[in-house]
Amino acid sequence: MKFNNQESLTTQQTVMIITNFILGIGILTLPRAAAEKVKTPDIWLSIIIGGLIAMLAGVVIVKLSQQFPKKTFYEYSQDILGKWLGCLLNLIVVGYFVAMSSVMLRAMAEVNILFLLEGTPRWAMIIAFMWVGFYLVIGGLSAITRLFQLIFPITVIIFFMIAGMSLKVFDINHLRPVLGLGLGPVLKGVQSTALSFGGFEIMLFLVAFMRDPKKANKAVLFGIGIPVIIYVTTALMVIGALSVDGVISLTWPTITLIKSIEFPGIFFERYESLLLVIWMMEIFTTFVITHYTAAMGFAQSFKKELRPFLYFLMPVIYIVALLPVDINELFALSNGVGNAGLVLFVFLPIVLLGIAKLRGGRT
């Protein structure tokens, strides 16, 4: 199986890939992570600012990728920096995606053990998840995209249905006063919210596959804009129901909120299962695209077939996923990966774009 550079994506498909990549563990942990930094009800403002930063970084990435038509980052990095330095940078990016895949797998296992499958060994859950993902990635980008198109509307429908249900326990007084302590606390929370928008970096690779690369800016803005809406809605409903102090004290505040919702007389009672369904689907999409992109890095850097690297990365991802001893170490690893992503995909593309411009752009 050779890497297929002839697969193509519509603008709509590109939007769905970006959106599904970004949505994941952030739905469950973002309110707590932001509340710890902000400590006021203005978390939603931090999320909006973080989203705007992600959009700006996404536009820079698109501009960089458009300088090298039909080439992914793994290919044009060597055009910009030279073969050896470009290859080293590619391996660093591959390491980032491997770590991201591992974090997603471990987070999935932790939540399932806590809320659904208590007592199930982590290794068994992770291995099952990995092999299902592998079955998809060997089908290539077109197969991955079709799954994303299926998952996206289900996610949106279920999420906003749950958000509507949360109005029963919503108290707007928990969101007041707006900017009571000024912009200072809001700005403190921008970093933690920006980490939850990791995923826009996928445009380093998707622009090369788009049928109309000129619409890449539109795709990245919509692809990030949808998670902004969902994250803001999540923050409002969680803070409005549990208050800032309540959110800070909880590991998974969004799930706690849904568990507190009751509709007497209705047969179905475990509404948190609905949230876990869409979250599991989003975790799966994030794992699949990061696994595929990491393998793509090896295949394109060394000009080899893709499939051997898909196999090779599975035990690596598995080992890294089991490294955190507990949930606190998992969050620490997640924050470390997120911070590395900010450096790699916010600041580095600006430098590479400047070098590319100095060298004459198109190569």
Rank of each mutant, 00 (worst) to 15 (best):
G297Q: 05
I248E: 15
L330M: 09
I162P: 11
Y74F: 15
I172T: 12
I25P: 11
Y318A: 14
D42P: 09
I43V: 15
V62Y: 01
Y135A: 14
F345I: 10
L30S: 06
L313V: 01
E269P: 08
F160N: 01
E36Q: 15
G354P: 01
R270G: 05
L45T: 14
G95H: 08
M210P: 05
I319P: 11
N5K: 12
A33V: 10
V316A: 08
V62R: 00
V288M: 08
Y74K: 08
F347W: 13
A294K: 08
R32C: 06
L274S: 07
F152Y: 12
I127G: 03
I17K: 04
N335H: 14
L276D: 05
I157V: 14
L333Q: 12
V186K: 06
F21Y: 14
V232M: 03
A124Y: 07
F345Q: 03
V15A: 02
I172N: 13
T293S: 09
S273M: 13
L30R: 10
I154R: 01
S102M: 04
S243N: 15
V60E: 05
A109W: 09
F268V: 08
F159N: 08
M108T: 13
S192R: 02
D245K: 11
M125I: 15
A163I: 10
I144W: 04
L306D: 06
Q149T: 09
G189T: 11
T293Q: 00
E269L: 04
W279Q: 10
A109I: 13
E36K: 11
I239K: 02
P227A: 06
M165K: 00
N112V: 13
A332S: 12
E201T: 09
G265F: 02
V325R: 11
I138D: 12
I283C: 12
G50R: 12
V325H: 13
S243L: 09
G95R: 02
F73C: 00
V94N: 13
N335D: 15
V320A: 11
M237K: 08
V60Y: 00
L116M: 12
A163R: 00
V346E: 05
L274E: 06
